[in-house]
Simulated scan of single mutants.
Amino acid sequence: MKNVWTEVTIGGQKMPIVQLSNNGRLCLASDMNMQSCSMRVKQSVSRIPVQIKLYEGETVESLQSVKDVNIELVRESSFFSVLGRLVGGNGLMNIKVDVFYNKADNNGVCIGFVSQYFQSNKYIVALGNITNDSEIKQHSSDSFVGQTLNPDKQSESYISAKDCFLENVEKFCEVIPLTSIQKDNKIIAEWEKIIVSLPQSSSLYTDFQSYKQNLSAWLLHLKSWGLKQDSCKEYPGSLIDSERYFTKDGVIDPNKQYVVLSPCWTLWKNCDGKNEELIVSVGLIQEK
């Protein structure tokens, strides 16, 4: 068997080539257990592309490409990532991505990616026959990468679009406020990726297709399901609920006036027979 090698590129930055196997045996020496790279990206970036190239060859000089795999590192859905995307704009931030190589089951190698602001992701390379698509499998605990929706092949029982949305509303906590200010193809793609990552989502996906060219109408449609956007434009500091709004510096002065940069979104939902207003996305305010 030829030796197997890999070259990882993260956000356009190439890592040194790593040998994964030598005559069929895994190469997990201490000098290849981890790699890392640092880069500056825009605050508004929600995904970083990762390319994994697989080669066969006796030496680095004689490598032949056998497989290209493309995955992504997806931005964490948090209040602070929303803040960065809302007000950071083209501002830059420093990120570091660590790449781990570990032994996996069935004579494979797990290539893992970890970063502070992005969800972890990994790819498992089975070394038995790397030219076979089935031998290279992607694993991502929280993010959706490269999946396509086929409603006819979903094994789960059918649920309505509304129920699918309500049961998974926390998955949309970042994209909802962004949709109100940024209605373009990137936001459409983000909605689709989130929806198809959910179980039993064929009805919600079909529903979204009817509205994706008019995202304002889509938000109105979601409001008919109980989603609510706070309509207040200003608040005195003394009346601001810190669970619903935050500032860039984390401080709210009760003696000052604040303007709403991004409104809070909530959802009226029946919980154990009682209607409750749940916070979907915390809003952003700024001192007037």
Rank of each mutant, 00 (worst) to 15 (best):
V280N: 03
F165C: 02
T179S: 00
S36Y: 09
Y101T: 08
D230K: 14
V175N: 00
L284M: 10
V8H: 08
L86C: 03
Q209P: 02
P16C: 06
G250L: 06
N275A: 10
G84E: 06
I48T: 02
S38D: 10
K2S: 10
A189G: 05
S65C: 05
G12D: 09
V41L: 13
G226K: 13
V8F: 07
G226D: 10
T179E: 00
I181A: 00
S81E: 05
V18C: 08
S281F: 11
S157D: 09
E276D: 13
L92D: 07
K269P: 04
M34D: 04
V280A: 06
T206W: 02
N214K: 13
H139I: 07
V251N: 08
K153P: 03
Y55G: 11
G84H: 02
R75A: 05
E276P: 11
Q229M: 15
G273V: 10
S36K: 10
T148P: 01
N275C: 13
N70F: 01
K228E: 12
I252T: 08
N107A: 04
L227M: 14
K274E: 11
Q257G: 06
S36F: 11
N255M: 14
M93F: 07
V18P: 06
W5F: 10
V125K: 00
M1E: 02
D241W: 12
Q13P: 01
A189D: 08
N107M: 06
S46L: 14
C271N: 09
G108Y: 11
S21P: 06
V282D: 02
V74K: 00
Q286D: 09
S238L: 15
I17Y: 03
E72M: 03
S141K: 09
Q154E: 08
P254M: 09
L166K: 05
G24I: 06
K53G: 06
F113Q: 08
V97W: 01
L28F: 06
K171M: 03
V69N: 02
W268E: 12
Q209F: 01
C37W: 08
G57F: 12
Q257Y: 05
P16W: 10
S203C: 05
A104I: 03
L222H: 09
Y211H: 14
V282P: 07
L261C: 10
I130Y: 01
E170V: 07
L284Q: 05
Q209L: 14
F172W: 00
